[in-house]
Amino acid sequence: MKKNEEKILKYLSEMLTNEERKQFEIELSRSYELKKELDAIQNRFVQFRYLETENADERYFASLLPKVYSRIEQNVNPIKKWKVALAAPSFVAIIVLAILIFRPNGYNTMYKDLAQEVIDNIFDEDVSQLYVSEIDITDEGNILTSQLNNYDISPIDDSAKENILTAYDYLIDDDILYINNLSDNELKQLQNKINSAISY
């Protein structure tokens, strides 16, 4: 890392204290080298705006709304809609299946603790909020997406949302391994939790 790089990055990300920032800006006004270094680093990040090129095909945006309306019309087709009563057990079945297939031989205590945390963090009402809607199902990925998507707009309070997101993160995010380490008993608890939410 170059001499001033760390300090410049802290400046750009507003990580410097007020005092440090003032000091840095004084140095900046006095040092041509530092100014040059700052400009070079800033340019490094600015070039990423090329990714949002002006030279994009406008026809795509012109054709977007008709496609959206077409999908909205398809969504009201009752054949394509699955009721929650079918969607939620399907989700549980997929989790069970995934665990049965991918469960490793040994259990790790850390994973068990995290799994327990997941179970503890999902409140019946919260899960219920996530499931009380009709969900389009095309594959397992879409089920997962649809369920969390309700989080976006569901009218539950912020702390409940945080709990759901935390729990969901543990289950699905990069830490999907955790779910593979649930014991039969833990899995049963999770199933009961979801089942009780469905009948809530």
Partner: peptide, 9 residues
């Protein structure tokens, strides 16, 4: 979510 779905896949 899409990125998570990719991770799951």
């Amino acid at each position: 979510n899409e990125l998570r779905r990719r991770n799951v896949k």
